[in-house]
Amino acid sequence: MKTLKIIIIIFFIYPTSNLKAEDLEMKNKITKNLRCLICQGQSVYDSDSEFANSLKIIVDKKIDEGLSEDQIYEFFKNKYGEWILYDPGLNKNTYILWLLPLLIFLAGGAIIYNSFIVKK
């Protein structure tokens, strides 16, 4: 009886999900790349929040509807903006993000080569 009571309480304060164990690979991959917008830096995959659980259901539905991975990303990008995707593609907003570290690497190499290494 007591167990039942606790279960009932949990129903109302605990995020629940309604998932089948199918299409998991793809779903995991997608949910790992989606940000749980209301959590602090967790992916939807890692989170149990209300928001994340609803999102997982939507991902499930979209997979069932036969949408491809990119189409699903596009869907969420439309709803919530690029902010929801963890893997920012290379575009005008992110050139600096992707290329600056590589430039720093090259510059570092050049500095080391020029100023420290004895040339023949």
């Binding site: 992916s43 690029e82 902010w83 995707l85 963890y86 893997d87 992110t94 993000l97």
Partner: peptide
């Protein structure tokens, strides 16, 4: 630019 992006594990 008030654009919001996330940078996560894949990056």
């Amino acid at each position: 630019s008030s654009e919001k992006i996330s940078v996560g594990p894949p990056f």
